[in-house]
Design a protein around this nucleic acid. Structure first.
Lengths: 206, 206
DNA sequence: GTCTATAAGGTGATAGAC
DNA sequence: GTCTATCACCTTATAGAC
């Protein structure tokens, strides 16, 4: 309703996201979230019913960008464009929402004990669509015969890793924070390897 | 010393691995580990100093196979063989040690708060070696000019995903457990995409 | 809407009998 | 080597004043 309420909810959600990402569900204490944004602990409970509801809100906040990233499979007629844009979008997510990505990854890692069924259904539906689109392109001879679902697993993993395992990425890139240039390097390398590896030749200019 | 002691330690370690994988460090209760193998809680404390020591032992148990997987970069003269074997070994690890892989992944995800420095050093050392080997092959014209470290990030992510995110893999493959055939499919697809994507032509038979 | 104080419940770790 | 009983501590969640 009120803008103040929404702003404060967003503030809490953002702080919670960071703490949950670095400590997991059980490792996160409400008091740590409260301290991070200098509010009393009870105030958190005024805006969110309990710890689990807060956690689930963090999870849900990540679903929208995640679903949007799959849009290129519907929007483009040629795999070169679709895969290029999909990779770019997924790397953008890793760059802009590393903490939410980590919370989500941790959730999947542990077997999705808190993930609502309707979210699972949405993700499955999108994945089915992407799979059948890839299969069409294979049938049309626009790309090599590669198992669509395994290709998706690789694309998800290779793009997410820049968020979920950014500790490792920073360690080996010897940097404190991954630069825009490095995200672009990652994106370009992946596009190059995936397109060439799938035998996709760029669409002929019309 | 005694074989009985070692067997029991291994039993506890194995149970701990499964629980830590599914609940994280803080979410894991010693009593759950004890119940899983029907021993009293205090018995766990007889074999391991405390919760953190037990957790660290689980982490350490995964380092040996992890380091061995990188061996192909030293053992082979041609990127086709090295990458093929590296992918095969990493997929094998995902198949045989999914829980340990999850514990390790979760540790990295959270910024490696419990990972001993000597393990970090070993991993860095191996990675440096693999990077310079890849660079040599690029310089020799045996593969395309692809950032070695970004290629490694992709290889790690794409292989690990079959262990760490196996919940998701099972969901989309519509199976209760990933079959040997499916692991092989994953391995073959990755080898195909990566070799072709990196412009690597198989070594000419001598 | 905000915050202090406290209730209620659970967990890591150990002492000490066997 | 094994196990029961218990301690000490900590966290979620709420009641009730402001």
């Amino acid at each position: 309703m009120s803008r103040i309420r929404d702003r404060k909810k967003a503030l809490i959600l953002n702080a919670a996201c960071a703490i949950f990402a670095n400590h997991g569900y059980s490792g996160t204490k409400i008091i740590d979230i409260a301290n991070k944004i200098d509010v009393p602990k009870a105030n958190i409970y005024y805006y969110f019913e309990n710890k689990e509801a807060l956690y689930r809100s963090v999870l849900e906040s990540f679903v929208t960008p995640l679903l949007q990233a799959t849009a290129p499979f519907d929007d483009y007629r040629h795999p070169a464009d679709a895969l290029t844009n999909f990779i770019k979008l997924k790397i953008e997510i890793s760059k802009n929402h590393p903490n939410a990505s980590k919370v989500f990854a941790n959730e999947i890692l542990q077997g999705a004990p808190h993930l609502p069924q309707d979210i699972i259904d949405k993700l499955c539906f999108q994945t089915e669509g992407a799979q059948s689109q890839l299969q069409q392109w294979i049938d049309q001879g626009l790309m090599d015969d590669i198992s669509p679902i395994h290709l998706l697993f690789t694309l998800w993993a290779a793009t997410q890793t820049y968020a979920d395992f950014n500790w490792q990425v920073k360690l080996h890139l010897k940097t404190d924070s991954i630069s825009d240039q490095q995200f672009e390097d990652a994106s370009n390398m992946l596009i190059k390897i995936i397109l060439k590896g799938c035998g996709i030749t760029p669409q002929v200019a019309k």
